[in-house]
Amino acid sequence: MTAPVPVTLAAGQARTRLHELTVIDVRTPGEYASGHLPGALNIPLDAVERALPDIRHAAERGDVLVVCASGARSENACRLLAEHGIPTATLAGGTGAWAAAGHDLHQSPAHGGRATWNMERQVRFTAGAVVLLGLALGLLIHPAFLLLSAGIAGGLVFSALTNTCGMAVMLAKLPHNRPRAADLDAVLAQLRSR
């Protein structure tokens, strides 16, 4: 059995078909809460394997659209789902392209109503803070601390070349970016009922 090839939908195509799609947002719960496609269910990328039976069930009943902020994480999720024989589509450019096309993003409170920065903003803040810390420690304490800044710079170049981000993977594990078990269980139950 050959793995299904994920389809890419432009924002306009997805909007036209939104009523017939099961939309799965693979961003962190905080990112999801800050703005998601109408009707999207939040299953963070690191929880997709746990959700395979429920996503398979949804795919048997209709088309599944996987979204993230830019399209990179949703492409990873689509590859994983394709390896398990689950056909999916991804949103070209993610929620960023959706919003840029003038389509509404729905917001929901995350963890008691606190909004969380999107992952790209979290990565930029963390990388900048670590670079500044490395420079300050390198100038004030010992030049070896400059290697910290160089390491972050190298990581950013690697991230751009490979379209992956190790820092985002680490930040996604922080408590404000993690779903509570009850939240994920409720989303999976919702997915099963579609």
Rank of each mutant, 00 (worst) to 15 (best):
V26S: 04
R180L: 11
F145W: 15
T2E: 11
S70D: 11
E60R: 11
A69V: 09
H36E: 08
A33M: 05
G30W: 06
S34G: 12
G154E: 10
V123D: 04
A99C: 05
A99V: 07
L188Q: 07
D25F: 03
A150D: 06
N118H: 13
V64Y: 08
V66L: 11
L135H: 02
P109S: 06
I24L: 12
P44Y: 05
L135M: 14
F158C: 02
F158E: 08
L105I: 01
R178E: 12
G166E: 12
V66D: 13
P44S: 02
L133K: 00
A11Y: 00
T16S: 10
A150C: 05
T116Q: 10
S159N: 13
C68L: 07
A160Q: 14
A100F: 09
E83I: 00
A136M: 11
A10V: 05
A51V: 07
A150V: 13
G62W: 12
N177V: 08
I86S: 01
H84A: 10
G138I: 08
G155I: 03
L105V: 00
L188H: 10
A115Y: 02
L146G: 11
L45R: 14
R124G: 03
G39E: 07
A189L: 12
G35Y: 06
V169T: 12
L132D: 11
L148Y: 01
P38G: 15
G112Q: 00
A136Y: 12
A59M: 02
A82R: 01
L139I: 09
G154D: 04
N42F: 11
T16G: 03
G113C: 06
A99W: 01
N42Q: 09
A101M: 08
A72G: 09
L81V: 10
L65T: 09
G62T: 08
R178V: 14
A168R: 08
V131K: 05
H19G: 09
G151K: 01
R27P: 01
P175Y: 09
A47D: 15
I24M: 00
A127D: 07
D25W: 00
R27N: 07
E20Q: 13
L146D: 06
E49T: 08
S149C: 03
A189P: 06
L80P: 02
D46Y: 09
G85M: 09
H84S: 09
E75M: 15
V48W: 03
K173E: 13
G128C: 09
A127G: 00
A136T: 15
G93W: 06
A127M: 04
L184S: 06
I152M: 07
K173T: 15
G102C: 11
A136C: 11
A59I: 00
V187A: 15
A115M: 05
P87E: 12
R121Q: 14
M167V: 14
A160L: 14
V67K: 05
T28N: 04
R180D: 11
D46L: 09
N76H: 13
T95M: 12
L156T: 00
G94D: 11
G30P: 02
S193E: 15
G155Q: 04
C165H: 07
R192V: 13
L52Y: 03
P109Y: 04
A11D: 01
R27E: 07
S34T: 13
A160P: 01
T95C: 13
T162A: 09
A168G: 14
G71M: 02
G134P: 07
L148V: 13
G102E: 13
R15L: 05
A182H: 14
E75P: 01
P53S: 01
T22C: 04
V67G: 04
L140W: 13
